[in-house]
């Protein structure tokens, strides 16, 4: 197998849109995504010497991108108030006997097979955009970046109970959004 080489002149053509789409899932707003893609390419250009040719160019760029995204998460925490406020209240409704209304159903999807459902994933991406900045942050770190609860708490100086409350409410908001945007259509 020939060794992989870097071709920076072709980066924009080959990877810009891919990275941009991916960024749109991780951060809220096209402006931030735009900036992150630029930062990634600039950083990659400076660190070409770290490319050992063992991975593909794409995977290497993606690694730098992940790194820059985490940097961005870290720096944004200074401006992000992670206290739980009234606006973060759980949106799920319960009846007087303590039952969720409407009752949760199966969504007519197999949770394992759901990953093959492209449209459903797009609805989730859209619904994630409707989350508040802090819920979005936390959900992405937990469910997309796969960080442990301990790590998120440490990174953001959060009490574990607050993290769980926020994750729970974020999931409930996403659940409701999924139900109103997609699953009730049929």
């Amino acid at each position: 197998m020939s060794e992989e080489t870097l071709e920076p002149e072709k980066w924009v053509e080959n990877y810009a849109d891919m990275l941009y789409r991916y960024t749109l899932v991780l951060v809220k707003g096209p402006d931030v995504a735009d900036e992150l893609v630029q930062v990634t390419f600039f950083a990659a250009l400076k660190s070409q010497h770290t490319f050992a040719g063992k991975s593909t160019e794409k995977t290497w760029l993606f690694g730098i991108f992940k790194h820059k995204t985490m940097d961005r998460f870290r720096s944004s925490k200074k401006n992000l108030n992670l206290d739980i406020t009234d606006a973060d209240a759980d949106r799920i409704q319960f009846d007087t006997t303590g039952h969720m209304t409407p009752s949760p159903n199966n969504w007519n999807v197999d949770s394992e097979k759901a990953t093959e459902n492209k449209e459903l994933a797009q609805v989730l991406a859209k619904c994630m955009n409707g989350l508040s900045e802090k819920f979005h942050h936390i959900f992405v770190l937990k469910e997309i970046e796969g960080l442990s609860s301990e790590k998120i708490c440490k990174e953001f100086n959060l009490k574990p109970t607050n993290l769980w409350v926020m994750l729970h409410r974020a999931r409930n908001q996403l659940k409701l959004c999924m139900e109103s945007n997609w699953l009730t259509k049929e």
Partner: peptide
């Protein structure tokens, strides 16, 4: 939700 997010 978790599986979809991981896939994203």
């Amino acid at each position: 939700l978790r599986n979809l997010a991981r896939n994203l």
